[in-house]
Design a protein around this nucleic acid. Sequence first.
DNA 1: GCGCTGTGTCCGGCTGGCTGCTGATTCTGG
DNA 2: CCAGAATCAGCAGCCAGCCGGACACAGCGC
Lengths: 242, 242
Amino acid sequence: MVGAMRGFSRTGGPSTPAPVGLAAAANGASTLLDVMRGLSGCVIETVERGKTIFFPGDPAERVYLLRRGAVRLSRVYESGEEITVALLRENSLFGVLSLLTGQRSDRFYHAVAFTRVELVAAPAGSVRRAIEQDSSVGLLLLQGLSSRILQTETMIETLTHRDMSSRLVSFLLVLCRDFGVPGNDGITIDLRLSHQAIAEAIGSTRVTITRLLGDLRQAGLVQIDRKKITVFDPVALAKRFS
Amino acid sequence: MVGAMRGFSRTGGPSTPAPVGLAAAANGASTLLDVMRGLSGCVIETVERGKTIFFPGDPAERVYLLRRGAVRLSRVYESGEEITVALLRENSLFGVLSLLTGQRSDRFYHAVAFTRVELVAAPAGSVRRAIEQDSSVGLLLLQGLSSRILQTETMIETLTHRDMSSRLVSFLLVLCRDFGVPGNDGITIDLRLSHQAIAEAIGSTRVTITRLLGDLRQAGLVQIDRKKITVFDPVALAKRFS
DNA sequence: GCGCTGTGTCCGGCTGGCTGCTGATTCTGG
DNA sequence: CCAGAATCAGCAGCCAGCCGGACACAGCGC
C-alpha cells in the first residue's frame, strides 16, 4: 500500500531546501509551522474534503502538521463501522506514531480531510535530526503534543457523560472551542457535520442526534442552517448538562 | 494552595546535583528516567495509595514521570461526581500542562496515587532548559508524550462503544495491556479496582458493572478474587464484543 | 431527469440507570 | 488485636432513554 499518496495534489516542497534545523535557528523561528517548513524532505500538501491522508496499514514514516482545515482520525472495524477518535484542529500535530521507536510501524487509524486541508508533512527521520541539531525544535514539538493531549482528554470527558443529551452538548462546546468562529449572533461551526458524523464521534446513532439537535433548536439554543451549526450562547448551552 | 505537597514523603533529590542536561549526555542516557533524574531541581517522591499528587487549582509548575505504580487523573464536578480521565501506567509522563505556555496556569485535574507510587518530578523550567542544552532530551520526552497520546486514544475507542458490555470488555483489555501481569492461568490486574472505580472510568454505574462482571465470571472468562481481576484468555474475551 | 445523501418522524423492545436493601469485606482507632 | 465504621458487592424491581428498523421527503450533484 502506498496509500499516503491517494487524493493528494502536491503544491511543492520548500523552495529553498535550507540545511536541516538551521533555518529555524537563523530566523529565530518561533512557530511549529516555521520549524516544519524548514525540515529537509518536508512537503506542503493540499487535500480536498473527503480525501484520505493515510489509510490503516500504510507505513508510518511521516509526521504531519495541520496548517489549515480539519482532519478526522478514525478507526475502521471489520463490521464496516467507523468511529472517530479525534477531530484535529489547525496547528495540530498528528501521525506521531512514526516518532516512537526506530522500528518500522504501520498506521492503524484512518486519516481523512474533513474540510479542504493544507498540511505540512516531514519524514520522521528529518524531525529526529532537526531536534538533535536545534534544541528549540524539540520544545515546540513538545508543546504541540501537549496541547494534543489536553484536547484528547477533554474528548474523554465528553464521552464519559452518561446521557446522550449531555454528551452532545459537551461535544458541541468542544467544537466551539476548536472550530468555532464568533459572529454577531453567536459562535458558528462551519464543518458541514452530518448527524451521522456527529453520531460516530460521540458513540450514538443518527436518529438520536437528529432528535436531540431538534430539541436544542426548539429550546432556542442553537441554529442549524445547511449543516452550519450556530451556538447562540455557549454559557447557556453549558447549563444544559443534566 | 500548596496542594502539591499533601500526602508526600520526600525520599531525597538526586544525590549529586549534576549540571543540567550534561548528566544525560555524559552517561549516554537513553531512558526518560535517566533524563528526568539528571534535571536540576528534580525530586524523587513516594506517594501512598489514595493520596493526592495535585489538586485542581494547584499551580502547574512541575512535570511528572511515573516510575512505579498507577496514577489516576480525574475531573471533579460541583455535583461531587468524579470521572476518570486517565489511568496512567509506569513510565507515563504527566502534568505536561506546565510545559505549554510560559504563562502561569493551574491544574484542572485531580491526580491521585492509585497504588503506592514512585515518581520523579521536575520543574517545567528545568525541563525547558535541559531540552535546549541536550537535544536527546527533547526526543525522549517526545516519545513519552507520543505514547501517552496513543494510550489516551485507545481509551476513546473504548468509550465510543455503545453497549456497556463491549465497553467493559474493551476496558479490561486496556487494563491487561497497561497493568496486567501474566501468570500461569491468565493475566492478572492487581489494581484493587472497585466496581465504583470502573464505573467512573467508563461512564457507567456501580450496579451495572456488578451485573456485567458477574456475567463475565459466569461465562468463565474472568475471575475476581478480592478486587484482583484475572482474565483467563484475552483473545476469548475480545470475542465478547457484540 | 435520476440517484444519493442527509433530515425528520414513528414505534416496539430492551438495555441500562435509579432506588432501596442486605450481607460481606476492609479500614481505622483504640 | 478487636470492635465499630465505612466501603464494597450482589440482588430486585421500575421506568426512561435510546437503539434498531422502516419510511417519507428534501436538497444536491451528476
